[in-house]
Design a protein around this nucleic acid. Structure first.
Lengths: 247, 247
DNA sequence: TTACCTGTTTTGGTCTGACCAAACCAGCGC
DNA sequence: GCGCTGGTTTGGTCAGACCAAAACAGGTAA
């Protein structure tokens, strides 16, 4: 995507915009820990003196830091350094994704990738899953079963059950992805009516998935997972098709 | 104009910055098609007049549009409206991800998710794959095989082969994800020496994958894919372990 | 005519200095 | 010690200016 025109720039080339150089400077300080997480940035006027640039430039650089998720800049407060993790990355995409999701087809596209990922996750879990992970799943399943009558609690335990799936591979990206899915899809889900009988059905589905994993049968686990999510999709689809009309 | 009582107060930290209002205004115009894709934004001074704000505010708003991926703003050129797709979303994450990748473990984490996704993709392809997709794969494989002696061409055809896997489910998110992986992982890959014998081995791996898909055997296809990518990882790992020492 | 060069105008990038209002802080009275 | 109060900091915004690069228009050469 980047044109080969410019040679690699690890240092502030003076051809670039001043704000970019400043941005890189702070980016480096944050990365190297000179500015630790939670630290506020210096006052704008101080940065002006330190770097010999105008406040305009400082503000642009800070804004860029903010937009990239490196600092947390609330309107009239000092920007605070925020360690960039994958969650921060997801935050910065939120806007774009939100726009894409306005198209119902967009929601389905996103949901389909979730199905694919979770399908893979349960397969892997079925293939090799540490006993303690299996135990966690069992406990979550139990809690889930105990909450069928309380839709609020059921929703929470439901989420927990699924999130454990993302934990099992011990890859920090996966939980972040899961949180992103939650954030993006939640608005759709929350409009869906919660009913005890649905809860019961979902809990049964969770049990099937768990059984598939426990018995070490990836095909069975995947099939159960797909059935479960397809069913969930139907429920949601029905819900927001009607509410779509209102807009 | 200066009403702090805007309805959009979902967060306690809502501040009514002029730049934000302008940003939202343009955001709306882009979404509603008043500003079409490819259109340049009006000159800053014109916006100043139209909206009765200062150039500072205009620049901040434009910068924000740029950072959010809504417009494409090269220095010294007019910002151009860009339709937000998932590629744009991935672009915005680029910075954060880049930082994560500086940790070698981060590269592995990302690569592992790629393995998982492609594993799922080949499984699905094996299960149900349109004849024309199979044909595309075959052609790509053929081209790949014909390029073993030319590492540059081999690399290109290699990428093509994999990207077809992302096309098959006809979910526009997947190609975007694939491009993101390419962009993020490419820097590591490009440092790797390319050798005809490696190409030959990789082509053989591709053939195995293709055969698995064609024969409708998801387990076989997945196994071949995993073997292929694990092998690729070993090659890359060896490469950047040495170059890591230099830092 | 077409293609290239050149001077002018436009426009983005940066700077300066100023003002306002909200946040911050220190001192006061209770 | 606690809450109030007024001065000080600091972020948000503005206006006007200058420079250099881009866009444009006009003229010249092929």
């Amino acid at each position: 995507m980047n044109e080969p025109s410019s040679q690699n720039a690890s240092q502030p080339r003076d051809g670039a915009r001043a704000a970019d150089n400043l941005f890189r400077a702070f980016e480096g300080m944050i990365r190297e820990g000179v500015l630790k997480e939670g630290d506020p940035l210096p006052p704008e006027r101080e940065i002006v003196q330190t770097y010999g640039v105008s406040r305009t430039v400082v503000r642009e650089a800070v804004l860029k830091l903010s937009n990239k998720g490196l600092v947390d800049a609330r309107p009239r407060f000092r920007p605070v350094v925020r360690k960039p993790d994958f969650d921060a990355a997801m935050d910065t995409v939120e806007n774009v994704v939100g726009r894409l999701l306005q198209d119902p087809g967009g929601v389905w596209n996103l949901f389909e990738t979730r199905i694919m990922i979770e399908a893979m996750l349960v397969r892997q879990a079925a293939t090799n899953c540490a006993p303690e992970d299996l135990e966690r799943l069992r406990l979550a399943l139990e809690a889930n079963g105990g909450a069928v009558e309380d839709s609020e609690a059921f929703y929470a335990t439901d989420k927990t059950f699924h999130s454990i799936l993302y934990d099992i591979p011990r890859n920090p990206l996966l939980p972040a992805i899961q949180r992103a899915y939650s954030n993006w899809l939640e608005p759709q889900w929350s409009r869906m009516p919660r009913l005890p009988e649905r809860n019961r059905r979902n809990h049964a589905a969770h049990t099937e998935i768990y059984d598939g994993i426990r018995s070490g049968d990836p095909d069975r686990a995947e099939k159960a997972l797909r059935r479960h999510l397809a069913q969930a999709w139907e429920q949601v689809e029905g819900t927001f098709e009607i509410s779509e009309v209102t807009q």
